[in-house]
Design a protein around this nucleic acid. Structure first.
Lengths: 207, 207
DNA sequence: TAGATTGTTAATCGATTAACAATC
DNA sequence: TAGATTGTTAATCGATTAACAATC
């Protein structure tokens, strides 16, 4: 069942599985069934089994999934088993919040450089990192092998930052600015758009 | 074409349309075609037409959509044409970032109360609002007719906050904590999960 | 063995896209 | 009128769920 085209929906669920498995592991739970997982995560057990089966046979019939083994496998699939340095541009409240989330991301994926264009931000220390000027972006990305860029600047500046990321050789971008980025198609862009999220929530309010 | 079941995917795109239309409006653009919209938003024009057609006939054949009129209509659909007060719990960096985003949300949807359980946060002023103690949550939500709650506390506290929101009569929740909430099914929960977003991004990195 | 649970196929359901008549 | 573009139907594509043989 290898090297089939995996849908984005599947990939988006893997981190959810991983997070919950980590909680189980912390509680010394040894095995878990798709039934259990589905219950806790509000997902259909068949879907969970199918998602995992895209990548291999990780379970044991009649038993379920070994928690530790499944964690290891999902981390491999998501490439979280290696170091992935991340750069962030925009050291406002949101940028700072994300830097402090480093704890959650664990060691493999880590914001290792923060940039800002505003002179009064440069030099500030966030989570043991100094905020660097934009002029250093390309060099730092190259020297630290940074592969992912996070954009937390205001919307009007987002495209400009994206351009600089692309020129510097970044491979994927997570954009928090409420704006659509134009980038070469080999660059993967994910969009974390909470104003849109909040506005769509209003739709579902009872009259 | 009314009162059909509208899919979540459609509703999630409406704020994207709205945002871009607002930009057009600011530039005094009068009409726009699904073609144009699709180009700018990286979406299929047919999809855009279909999305809008669920809610009415907003365009003119041969012409396109009147920008001002379409803005008005989408705002109605999303219930953004009325006041929707929002409460936020958790005044860390992320909470503060969201409060400052109030500008983007414009006047209709607005964070009007901030809560925290930590004594050294209570009383701090963020964007002209004092951080209130959790003990006041239920009263403030009732008195200010708050309908939406945002959760920006650490994961282990998120369910507890959700419970308090539900008890206080909130109708929808936007959860930023990396945890799955259990709430009654009439409460709508959206999940803004950027650690998951970032982890799924790693999957797409070239080998 | 009996019970539980996987991996996988088939069935269903839903979302996107293409195509085109209607019409501005 | 000719060109452009909608609204909508039909075709395609994709994702979810049900069902069950295989097997621990």
């Amino acid at each position: 069942m290898k090297s089939l085209k995996i849908s984005e929906a599947v990939v988006k669920r893997l981190p959810i599985y991983l997070r919950f498995l980590n909680e189980l592991s912390k509680k010394n739970v040894l095995t878990v069934s798709s039934q259990d997982l589905g219950q806790k995560l509000n997902l259909n057990p068949a879907q969970i089994r199918k998602d995992l089966a895209y990548f291999g046979e990780f379970g044991k019939k009649g038993i379920g999934y070994d928690v530790t083994y499944l964690i290891e496998k999902i981390r491999q699939i998501l490439k979280l088993d290696r170091q992935i340095p991340v750069a962030l541009v925009g050291s406002g409240n949101l940028g700072r919040a994300l830097c402090n989330y480093n704890i959650y991301l664990r060691d493999q994926m880590k914001i290792t450089a923060i940039f800002d264009s505003s002179p009064d931000k440069i030099g500030q220390v966030i989570n043991n990192m100094s905020v660097l000027p934009m002029e250093h972006l390309a060099d730092v990305i190259r020297d630290s092998s940074i592969r992912i860029g996070i954009i937390t600047v205001p919307a009007p500046e987002a495209q400009n930052v994206a351009n600089q990321f692309v020129k510097a050789g970044i491979e994927a971008i997570l954009n928090f600015a409420p704006s659509i980025l134009k980038v070469p198609e080999e660059i993967r862009v994910h969009h974390a758009d909470f104003t849109a999220e909040l506005q769509s929530l209003a739709y579902y309010l009872p009259e």
